[in-house]
Every structure is written in C-alpha cells, then in structure tokens.
Simulated assay, not measured.
Amino acid sequence: MLQITDLHAEIDGKPILKGLSLSINAGEVHAIMGPNGAGKSTLGYTLSGRPGYEVTGGSATFDGRDLLALLPHERAAAGLFLGFQYPVEIPGVSNLQFLRTALNAQRRLRGEAELSGGEFLKIARAQANTLGVDMEMLKRPVNVGFSGGEKKRNEMVQMGIIDPRLAILDETDSGLDIDALRTVGHGINTIMRRPDKAVLLITHYQRLLDYVKPDYVHVLAAGRIVRSGGPELALELEREGYVGVAA
C-alpha cells in the first residue's frame, strides 16, 4: 500500500528526514517511536503534503501512485488521513458542516456522487454511536472549547466519516487520560482494523499500543529508521529508553 524509499526531506533548509525507508501493506498496523526531534511528525507532514516540508530525495508511492506528485487534497481523496497531535480549532464552523464539505469534496474528486444532508447525517450518527460521542458535540464549532480528550474523540469520528485507507496518526495519545485513551484505541481498531486499510501510529509511549496492537514497531532516530521489530520492541523501549535501543 505505502512504499517509502530513501526519503529525504527538509524544513527551511534544515534536513530532517535522512534516507527513511518503510513499507506498509494493507491490513497492517505499524508504530513509529523515537526521541524528540527524530523526524516522526515531519514524516507525517511530508506524506500528507503539508506546505514547508520539502522533499529533497527518495520516493513514496501509495497504491502504486507517486504520492509526492499529488497535491494535499489529492492525497486525501486517494485515501490518506492525517491525525494531528494538536487538532486545530475552527471557530464558526460546525463539525457537521466541516465534515460534510470535506467528504463531498473528496467524493467529487473521485468521481462519486455527493451525499445529501440526510445521507451524511446517517453516516455521522452511526460513527458517533460507535465511538460513544453525543451528536450534540458534532453540532459545535470544530474543537472550540473541547478538552484534549474531546478533540481526540472528535478526530476519531472524523476518521470514521472520512473512511480513509491509510491513517497516519501523529501522537494521537498525547494528553489523554485512561478513559480517553481507551476510546481512541477502540476507534482505531473499529475503523481501521480491516484487510483493505492500514495504520501508521506515531507515538512516544507504549500505552497506546496496549489498546492498538501493532504488527510492527520501528525506531526512528536522526531522520532514519534504525531498528524494526514486533510489539516486543516497544516494551524494550519502555525499559531501556531510546539511547540504548537506537544506538
């Protein structure tokens, strides 16, 4: 599904990714762990096409297409979803309005018919019910006045409605209490644990992996993946820290 080969990227002329290679197949969950400044968020932003992140070498293909040649909205329509560490607030725009607009924009780009208001609400209610989110929350402006846990639960509903093929989740466990973490883990498993989908979890800690069992764990240090293994590698990182494991 996703094939990254010798990827190099920089921000404001400063190299961050320095030859990163990674392969993710459909049906797999991969976790990337690493110290601050290793390039974890940069990887997510580069793959999603965020402005300011310049690719200087290597390649990335998604379902056989040159991902790096696509504009950000084209990457989203192709099935790529980026979950933010710090979801932004959008005053004056309700979650329902935002999500219906985003979903129909993607459907138009794929040549699919737009959803009517009734059709969209049916999908939104189903996703909200699955994740235990009150529909009143979706009528509020996007993330305005939300707690950290509410923002992340809201993002899980967004992911369920958009229904991507590949979800890149950037420290989605950041700032969550135990209950919110459990809800987010349930959302990821419910929405993305399917044979035709895949997940790339970017995290510092093992705790999210207690709820979302990864198939593979990778250590990212100094812009490259320096070790890969199974779920046991995350436990080793918890015990030993990054210094010994990433050396």
Rank of each mutant, 00 (worst) to 15 (best):
A76Q: 01
H73P: 01
F98N: 10
L47G: 07
E89A: 09
Y86S: 11
V88Q: 13
G118D: 15
S147V: 03
N143D: 07
L70G: 06
R153Y: 09
G132Q: 04
S94K: 02
S94I: 06
A128P: 09
V55H: 07
G132N: 04
L70N: 08
L109V: 09
A38Q: 03
E150I: 01
P35L: 11
T101Y: 01
A105R: 10
A105F: 00
T61W: 02
A105W: 00
K152E: 09
G27A: 08
K151C: 06
A126V: 03
V55N: 09
V29R: 10
G34R: 05
L99N: 00
L17D: 06
E136H: 14
L68I: 08
K151W: 06
L138W: 04
N25C: 05
P35D: 12
L20F: 02
E28D: 12
R50C: 08
G148A: 03
G57L: 03
S48A: 14
I11V: 15
L17P: 05
P35A: 15
M137D: 11
V29F: 12
Q97S: 13
K122P: 04
D12V: 08
G37F: 01
H30Y: 03
G57K: 05
A9W: 01
N104V: 00
K40R: 12
S48F: 13
L82Y: 13
G148S: 02
E136A: 15
G148P: 02
Q106E: 11
